[in-house]
Design a protein around this nucleic acid. Structure first.
Length: 632
RNA sequence: GGCUCCGUAGCUUAAUUGGAUAGAGCACCUGACUACGGAUCAGGAGGUUGGAGGUUCGAGUCCUCCCGGAGUCACCA
């Protein structure tokens, strides 16, 4: 029996699919067998190796259909011959069977046993050696005019967990957010506070800063609506309607569509907000002071929510600092003839990727989203020298990023090919899309409070932790509630639009975070009771039971799962893996006695196996930003 | 209308990237501890993978055409 690799290796085939050492060995074996038996040269992708399906005997399966032509034989015969060859040449392969064109290989118990014993304490299991790659992940871009909501939560959880996963995959990760702290929106809140705020502060009102400011934003909208409704009764409005409405357009429809123009042309409140913005841009001291104060309130509120979510950033960019960037890069683009100029307006022709003309500098000479992003990308590169930059941003901005990346490629920026937009789908409610106007936006802080409260009630009913100090209980309940929320969001493939059912998100049974935590808690409980066992007896355990094999194989797959999640920027792989591992453990726990196992060897092996399951569960959940309680 | 994404059980979803009889959870029905924690386990029922063709040993997955939904097509961010 060859020894289990001391250090974990993940191999890649030509399509860079992550592959465990065992899979790789078997694949090489199949290729060599084909050469020896048939004189055929197989490409790696022609030698497909996969875990054996549950209903068949075996651990790994080689698909031999692709060999039919080369060998000029029936698939069953090929399976037999290759199986025979592998059995004699690979020590790990104990026996085989052939079903149709599938060659099922059984790995020796001693291999699995040794795997558990050598990896149970290996701190690098599921963590990869340093790649030397630096990856920047941008994953939150809130506006400072209102509090965070459910959409931000998905964004933040995805960004955080993909960062954790990339780190586990050996990359150096720089987590960053960009805060949109300027523009007309924040000016609206400022106007409202100035007019109706009476100099109050969040502290005085006992309110979180972001909610406090958000309320003024809402107040502005309300007052503006009132103003607009009143204006519609005036003669001026009558005249505007008469002059500008389209044929057959009703009055109601016209005024509904006219709102923005009213804001810009007629509204006193609108004028005030625009004047505020003008002063801000002119650097008016008083305006800046108000702006700074209100933004700080909001940012403090955000920080608190981030803390509750358990996320942080290495670097925060403020748009007020970055919105004028890009001058230099635009000059270069003009000099290279990539950009064109009409008066003050600067644009680029992106019709080659189906985007038409894209404005980079407006005809009044001011910047655009695109110019800011161009400048910011370069600044970040100069600051950090990243190899990759991943933008975790909603899928409604797909074409913006296509355009941005294309421009940077044409400018020949050295990092242009390392840019990636991780476009996640919007979060819908069972009632449909979240709409702030209809008050259906799910507030982040409320949601967090709700899931924790739900966990608190469950815990109270169960009574398991009732005798613990209140502080510990609260910590446990928080971990459980957050696990429910986070797991619920992360288990879905990021690019899919998801429906968020609040009732389901606080579920703690079935495919949920608390279910996974429960497996961990059970193991901890068993281990507490078995403090005295001797691990070395595990080596004497010769024949693995089916439930044990199932667990070991899942454990063995873990590094592959991490590698796949990192390659695809998809944390849902890790979530689903953690669930599967927890499920296999719950079943194992139910089917086999651990502490009262039939022999000293069985007891030791099962304890070691359980210990490793706990470690891997904890690690996997950690990658998702979910903490494990010791009891629950 | 152009481009992009999506469509899997009543609901929420998975499928090792072209592999075996499409897996789970919720909800519903039925069972299982005087056992190491029942936030558990086992069983039942529930599917023409939106539809029709095609490619091949083999298709939820690839190609074509339809149907349905979403996003985007700004001198907004």
């Amino acid at each position: 029996m060859c020894s289990v690799a001391k250090q974990w290796h993940i191999y890649s085939n030509q399509r860079s699919m992550p592959m465990s050492e065992l899979t790789h060995k078997i694949q090489q074996g199949v290729i060599e067998a084909a050469r020896a038996l048939y004189g055929a040269e197989l490409l790696p992708q022609q030698a497909v190796i996969q875990p054996t399906r549950k209903d068949f005997e075996g651990d790994y399966t080689a698909v031999v259909f692709p060999l039919m032509r080369l060998a000029r034989k029936q698939p069953e015969a090929i399976g037999e011959e290759i199986g025979q060859w592998l059995c004699t040449h690979l020590e790990e392969v104990e026996r085989y069977n052939v079903v149709k064109g599938f060659l099922n290989l059984v790995i020796a118990d001693s291999y699995w046993n040794q795997f558990v014993r050598t990896q149970v304490d290996a701190t690098d299991f599921g963590r990869f050696p340093a790649s030397g790659q630096k990856i920047m992940v941008e994953y939150a871009s809130p506006n400072t005019n209102k509090p965070l909501h459910l959409g931000h939560i998905r964004n933040i959880l995805l960004g955080w967990s993909i960062s954790q996963i990339l780190e586990a995959a050996g990359h150096e990760v720089i987590k960053t957010q960009i805060v949109n702290d300027r523009g007309i929106a924040i000016c609206r809140s400022m106007v409202a506070w100035k007019r109706w705020g009476n100099g109050t502060t969040p502290e005085q009102m006992g309110k979180k800063g972001d909610h406090f400011v958000g309320d003024f934003y809402v107040l502005f909208s309300k007052k503006f609506e009132e103003e607009y409704a009143a204006w519609q009764q005036t003669e001026v409005a009558e005249r505007v309607f008469a002059e500008r409405h389209q044929e057959g357009q009703s009055k109601a429809a016209f005024f509904k569509a006219f709102k923005n123009q009213y804001f810009n042309e007629f509204s006193p409140l609108g004028a005030e907000a625009r004047e505020m913005l003008r002063k801000w841009e002119a650097g008016d001291e008083e305006t800046l002071r108000l702006w700074r104060m209100m933004n700080n309130w909001v940012l403090e509120g955000f920080e608190e929510t981030y803390r509750k979510l358990g996320v942080s950033f290495d670097k925060t960019y403020l748009e007020s600092d970055t919105y004028l960037l890009g001058k230099e890069i635009i000059e270069e683009g003009l000099a290279k003839g990539i950009f064109h100029k009409d008066g003050k307006r600067i644009w680029i022709d992106l019709s080659n990727i189906g985007l038409g003309e894209k404005t980079i500098i407006k005809s009044d000479g001011t910047s655009t989203y695109t110019s800011q992003d161009l400048g910011t990308a370069r600044m970040r590169y100069e600051e950090f020298g990243f190899h990759r930059l991943i933008y975790v941003v909603g899928d409604e901005q797909i074409s913006h990023f296509q355009g941005l990346f294309e421009i940077l490629r044409r400018l020949d920026e050295p990092y242009a090919n390392g840019l990636y937009h991780l476009a996640y789908g919007m979060v819908d409610l069972p009632s449909g899309r979240m709409k702030s106007r209809e008050g259906t936006v799910v507030d982040a802080d409320d949601l967090i409070e709700e899931v924790v409260e739900e966990a608190r009630q469950h815990a109270a009913e169960r009574g398991e932790i009732a005798e613990l100090p209140a502080e510990q209980q609260e910590d446990i309940v928080r971990k459980i509630g957050m696990a429910a929320l986070k797991f619920f969001i992360i288990k879905v493939n990021p690019r899919k639009r998801m429906t968020f059912d609040p009732a389901e998100s606080v579920d703690m049974q079935g495919q949920t975070g608390p279910y996974v935590q429960n497996a961990y808690v059970r193991i901890r409980s068993v281990l507490r009771k078995a403090a005295d066992y001797e691990a070395k007896h595990a080596a004497d355990y010769e024949t693995l039971q089916p439930g044990e094999r199932e667990l070991v194989k899942l454990l063995y797959q873990y590094p592959e799962v991490v590698a796949t999640a990192a390659r695809e920027y998809d944390p849902s792989h890790v979530a689903n893996y953690a669930y599967n591992l927890a499920r296999a453990f719950h079943k194992f726990y139910h089917d086999y006695p651990i502490l009262k196992a039939e022999s000293e060897a069985a007891r030791a092996f099962r304890l070691e196996l359980s210990r490793m399951v706990a470690r891997v569960l904890e690690q996997a959940m950690h990658l998702l930003g979910i903490e494990m309680p010791e009891r629950m």
